[in-house]
Structures are given as C-alpha cells and as structure tokens.
Nucleic acid binder design. Structure first.
Length: 269
DNA sequence: TAAGTATGTTAAG
DNA sequence: TTAACCTACTTAC
C-alpha cells in the first residue's frame, strides 16, 4: 500500500536482502514468466525508487520496473521460502531471504532508456536528495488547478499520495481547493521541506505519521486513534470526527476520483 | 456468496 | 468524467 515512502523503503529492503547476489526468479502467477526466466540466476546490482516507481537493476539485462498501483503488495520472508501461492507475480529468492510481489499494476523488464523515460515524466521526489522543488513550483505557481489535485499529479511532484496530500495541507493550514497559483513561494518551500521530513520518517518507520508532538494523543488526553494504514494522522479517513486541533468536524469530498479530507476551520484560503 | 473498499494510474469517451 | 486493471480484506445478506 504505497505512497513514495513505501517504495523507497522497498528499494532499500530489496538491496539489503539480495544486493550483490544472484537470485532465483519465478512468476508463479504467470504474467511475468518471460521476465523472470531472464532474471533467474542473475545478480541484483542496483535498486532505486522515484516516486511510486521501483527499479531493480540487473546490469546489462536491464531493470525490473515495478509499480504497485492501489492493490500491489510486497511480502518479505526468511529462507527457506514456502511454496508460493498462485497470485505471486514475482518471487525472488536468495540463500537467506525471499520476496513475493502480488497485484502490481506494472512488473516488467525494461532497458536503461525506458527507465530514463520514466524519470523524465516524473516530477521531483522529496525523497531524492538531488531533486529540485523549483521544478514543481514552476508548474504550481502558474496553475489554476487546486493544490489538492496538483499534489497528486506525479508529473509535478513524485511520491505524494492521498495520505500525504491531505496531511501536509492540514499541517500548513491550506484549503485543498486553493488554486496552485494562489500559493506563496514561502508556503511551497514550507510544504516541500515538510514533505522531505515526513516522508523520510515514513521510510524509517514504514508508516505515515504526521501528528505533531503537542497534538499527540498523550499530550491531548485522548486515546490513540491509529488509522488502518498504521500511523497517527490529523485528517486522513477521519471524516465527521473532531479535528485534533480545533474540535471542528473533519470534512470529506471526492476530488479527482479520490477521497479528500480536511478541516474547514484550520485550513483557509 | 456478493458487494464494497483501499495509500494508484491509464486510456477511452 | 468513467471505466478498467490488479488483490485481499471486511461487511452485508
């Protein structure tokens, strides 16, 4: 269940378990049999993430490109690997560990050139240290589209999904319906650096936590209310519940085919 | 058993 | 704007 932090964590976890070693590869479900056959016995030489895209490098053979989509899941385990279930698109197995990939939107073998084309159509990623937030600002500051929609557009900024968008807008008191061009440069700088911190912590903990210390359950005298995805949040999936800061009712609405959550009191135009 | 839902994206209309 | 795709889990009947 993937926003960018999940994918960066997966890149690190794959390399930690399989990096520099040859792996056995198979596709029990069948849709990646050709690719798995080519990869089988090769050495994992590199792993990389950009936004929600994962790349596993096998040298001259190319890269396995994985996108989890909405349903994709990855499951690591220790050797010996049990028999795979029939929905496993890709299993990689080494001497000490295995990993199963299920339900991805994309799992294919690509060339360096195809990988470069994917990077080209993605915006800067808060988790890639060299990436430049000004590239996103150039688009946002000229756009009449709402900031909530812009934050989900991977061409503009890569790796932010429905949870981070809702939470970062709350943390900065910005109405999700505000047009991008009405943001100030300072607001954008603050959003970007906040995303860098939040998403790095997301990679470390493998979950999304966005609640500031002073609003944490212990500090507020309320019971911990951890969302299904695993973290403590202000607004995501908290429709009709009281805002942690002002007590007002959290609102929800559809925006760009996804559920948006916000506090109309704390988040102003 | 069926329906509904989910941290996503693309393509068709 | 809508449908389609991929999986697993929860809830309703």
């Amino acid at each position: 269940m993937p926003e960018g932090h999940t994918i960066h964590r997966l890149a690190a976890d794959h390399f930690e378990r399989f990096g520099g070693r040859s792996v056995r590869a198979s596709s029990p479900q069948g849709k990646f049999s050709d690719g798995a056959e080519l990869v089988d016995g090769r050495r994992l030489e590199d792993s990389e993430a950009h936004g929600k895209h994962l790349f596993l490098g096998f040298g001259a053979l190319g890269w396995i490109h994985v996108h989890l989509g909405l349903f994709g899941k990855v499951n690591f385990g220790d050797a010996p690997a049990p028999p795979p279930t029939d929905t496993v698109r890709l299993r990689l197995a080494g001497p000490s560990a295995y990993v199963d990939l299920r339900g991805p939107t994309t799992c294919s073998l690509i060339t360096d050139g195809e990988k470069a084309a994917i990077h080209d159509r993605l915006g800067p990623d808060p988790l890639r240290p060299a990436d430049d937030p000004d590239r996103a600002w150039a688009r946002i500051s000229r756009s009449r589209t709402t900031i909530a929609a812009l934050l989900m557009d991977q061409k503009i900024i890569a790796g932010v999904g429905n949870v981070y968008r809702a939470e970062v807008l709350f943390r900065h008191g910005i109405d999700p319906y505000r047009p991008g061009k009405d943001l100030t440069r300072d607001e954008w700088s603050a959003i970007w650096s906040d995303l860098v911190e939040l998403m790095r912590e997301g990679v470390r903990n493998n979950r999304i936590d966005t609640v500031r210390p002073e609003h944490e359950p212990e500090a507020m005298g309320r019971p911990p209310r951890v969302d299904d995805h695993g973290g403590e949040v202000y607004v995501y999936r908290r429709a009709h519940l009281p805002c942690h800061v002002c007590g007002g009712e959290i609102r929800t609405a559809g925006l760009a085919a996804r559920n948006l959550f916000w506090c109309a009191t704390c988040q102003q135009r």
